[in-house]
Structure formats: C-alpha cells, structure tokens
Computed example of a mutant assay.
Amino acid sequence: MTAHKTPVTVVGLGPMGHALAAAFVNAGHPTTVWNRTAAKADGLLAQGAVLAASAAEAAAASPLVIVCVLDYDASDAILLPIAGTLKGRTLVNLTADTPARSRTAAAWAAEHGIDYVDGAIMSPTFTIGTPSAVLLYSGSEETYLAHAETLAALGGSHTHLGTDPGRAAGFDLALLNIFWTSMSGLAHAFAMAEAEGIDAADFAPFAQGIIGLLPESVTEMAGLLARREFPAEISSIASNVTTMDHIIHAAESRGMDPGPLGAVRPVAQGVIDAGHGACHIARLTLHYLNTRP
C-alpha cells in the first residue's frame, strides 16, 4: 500500500513533530524520523515509522524532509551541518520563528542547492491529519506544488501565500498576536471580575457574547484599512479612551496591573494628539506602522 507513496522524513519529534510524522505514517507514506532524544520515536516506530541514527541519515532517506523544532536556532543547529546531504532534496521548514529568519533560511538553502518551502501550522496538534488542520506555506510555488499531494496527508486546508519565504511566518505571528493578546486580555478580564466578586462561571457567558463581536470587527477593520479611510460611525478613539480609563482605574483600585490596556492607552492618546481622535479605532494600525524605527 505504501509503494506508490512518496517517502517522507520528519526531523523533530516534539508534540507537533510527532503529530506530523503520525499523519504521514497513517496516510501510508514510508516515514523516517529523527530526534535528539530517540525515545520520543517509540510510539511512531510501533506504527511503522523508521528511526534514523542521525539527522544526516534521516535526510538521506527521503526526497522530502520536514523539520519542526522549537525555533530556527534549533533547526539551524540540525540542518546547517547536513547541507550536503540535503542538496537536491526538498526541505519544508514548519518551525515557527520570524519572517526574517525564514528568509535567511531560504537564502541558505538556495546557496546549497536545496529546494525550500517555509510553512506555519495554524492549528493544534490534535487537528493534524484531520479536516480541521490549517497549514500555510510560502516560498517557491513550483516546489510547493510538487509536494502538495504528499503534504495533503497532514489534513485540512493548505494555502500557498506567495513566493516571499517570510510570508507564512508573517501571517503566523500576526495571527498569533490576535490569539495571545486576546488570551491575555481575557485572563485580565477574569481577574477583574473575580476582584469584584463575580464568579468565573457567571461571567463566562457574557464574555462569549463580547467575543462574538470580533468577527464582524475584523471584516470592518480590513475594509477601512484597504480604503485608508477611518470614519467612526458609532464610536471614535476619543470616546473609547474614556472606557479604557474606567477599566484601568478600576483595575488599579483593586491593586491590579492595568493589563494589556495599560499599553494600548498611550498609543490611543498619541493618535488623539495627532488630530485623529474622531477616527475609528482601526486608525491605531497606522500609528503602529508609523512608529517603526
């Protein structure tokens, strides 16, 4: 059943790397794995994967090499010494890091005759191999398309975002910015509620209602930014800072850190001072862009 399937190597067997390797095995691809701690491969070996004795041996086993480790310092430590083995093969780097690191890695790969695609995994480990998985890619479209059928074993949706190798990482960090900023705000909101004697279970349904406003806000902000016009039809930055001040003062009155809004409030004031207080809050985006060094 595996004779017609492209062999795949997976380097790095943390939770995500393990999930990637398992998906390839389950889809019938001959799968070679390698990890600094070999014991992490035990479950995969029972499913039919093959453990390589070294990273070089792992790379030599397949035309398609997937790497998924902690960051690009970790991937560089593994990949740079085996550039000769990787030559002529395709390397898909699903390690999370910055767009700049992705572009540097792509340039290194090109110098060494390695076909390179950068990628980002936008869903948890348990989605890999299922219809819920979400993966983004950037870099050579030709290289991506040559292996798209094999990568489909990871399940879900696969989107090639363009030839800039850093584009997938750019999407990744911007999207995770939404998630982690929201999660930190949510944690602060639960703290504020508890400080006022509000039980988390009582608070949660109303928090869900507030979160339900976000999808429409995303669409609205995208449209405003596309037009570079920021009319505030309902509430302006100037009116919103009043609420921000109430939240900050209430938190501080309970001896709490002001949380994420403590960082946002001076940004909003900068926009107001620049004469844009009557604008929609999407106007803050241009302030962030204009304050880049």
Rank of each mutant, 00 (worst) to 15 (best):
L145S: 12
E149I: 04
T150N: 05
L151C: 11
A153F: 06
G155L: 09
G155W: 07
G155K: 10
T159G: 09
T159D: 14
H160F: 12
H160G: 08
D164E: 14
P165N: 10
P165Q: 06
P165E: 06
G166R: 13
G166Q: 11
R167Y: 03
R167S: 08
R167I: 04
A169F: 10
F171N: 06
L173V: 13
L176K: 11
N177Y: 14
I178N: 12
W180P: 07
T181F: 08
T181D: 06
T181E: 13
S184I: 13
L186A: 11
H188R: 05
A189G: 09
A189W: 00
F190N: 09
F190L: 11
A191H: 12
A193Y: 05
A193C: 06
E196L: 05
G197Q: 10
G197F: 06
A201C: 02
A201T: 11
D202N: 02
F203W: 08
A204V: 00
P205C: 08
Q208P: 02
Q208F: 08
I210W: 05
I211V: 15
G212I: 10
G212A: 08
G212K: 00
L213A: 14
L213G: 14
L214R: 07
L214K: 06
P215H: 02
E216D: 07
E220F: 05
L225V: 05
A226I: 03
R227D: 02
R228H: 05
R228Q: 03
E229W: 05
F230N: 06
F230T: 00
A232R: 03
E233A: 06
S235K: 00
I237G: 11
I237V: 15
S239L: 07
S239Y: 00
N240T: 09
N240Q: 13
H246Q: 03
I247L: 10
I247E: 01
I247N: 08
I248E: 03
I248W: 00
H249R: 13
A250P: 04
E252Y: 10
R254S: 12
G255V: 14
M256F: 10
D257F: 11
P258V: 04
G259Y: 05
P260G: 12
R265M: 03
P266G: 01
V267P: 00
G270P: 00
G270D: 10
I272V: 15
D273V: 07
D273I: 04
D273M: 01
H276Y: 15
C279A: 15
C279S: 15
H280L: 01
R283T: 14
T285W: 09
T285V: 12
L286H: 12
H287A: 13
H287I: 01
H287T: 07
Y288C: 10
Y288P: 01
L289D: 09
N290G: 12
N290P: 02
T291N: 07
R292W: 12
